[in-house]
Amino acid sequence: MARSAAKIPSAVEVDLVLRTDALTRLQSTGQYALELEAVSRHFGALVALADINLTVKAGERRAVLGSNGAGKTTLFNAITGDFPPTTGRVRLFGEDVTDLPVHERIRRGLRRTYQISLLFDGLSVVDNVYLACRGASRGRLSLRRPKPDDAMTHVAETLLDAVHLGAVRDSLVAELSHGQQRQLEIALALAGAPRFILFDEPAAGLSPTERSELIEILQSLPPHIGFIIIEHDMDVALRVAESVTMMHNGRIFKEGNPKEIESDPDVQELYLGGGHA
């Protein structure tokens, strides 16, 4: 898969080199970016996730597919801590984060996007990304205004250019189109040196042109950033992912590379119904 580095300032390029080195070290030690060990999540009598065991290597890009209600978004919520697992353990880069609150997991390099855009409607586009950059660094409680030459503001503007939102940087989020809001979702997830991102249906509601832009953005992510993508558009999912996990009724149903999954008769049976080759 072609992965070209995004156009970024020199300070970030240095950071990228360091992180790519770190990725090489992680891969050489065989450490996983994400490990789920017997994770279950119950809502009363409903078992949304049942005994999930999943490992994702550092820098790996994986698609999680499945029909509605398969448990994909619940899986994301269990990983981020929005809805902690009822049983089981979650490890991020070797560290057990099961009992950590959401913001602590985020500060360890985890990011996510949401199925329905969750943005700060009353703030400008650049303020949204600035806050996301600041969220993973110090100075979150600062009572001083960021200066025009503030490094975080600069990184925020660079990120906006990378997701093609530079022209609307000062617009209020409420004024953006649906497609632009989805792109801003991705910018928030990319802010603040992420190491592992969970994309929840990022292509939902996008036009064909916007989907192409999305694929380009995902393919151009720096190699140290691994991700899991939930996507109903198989074209998007299979073009950006190097491995696929199929879910069904809260369980892992099948794992493999995109070609294996595409040609698997069980998957075809599940997705398309019986009688399809």
């Binding site: 609150p101 913001h103 500060r107 700060f120 969220g135 009572l143």
Partner: peptide
Amino acid sequence: ARSTFGLSLQAIRDNPRRMRAIGYDVTLH
């Protein structure tokens, strides 16, 4: 209101869940 804390407070008003998901301790703020 335009300081980092002021912006984050307004963002928490708009969407506390998202603020957690970008690294903020919403309760502390």
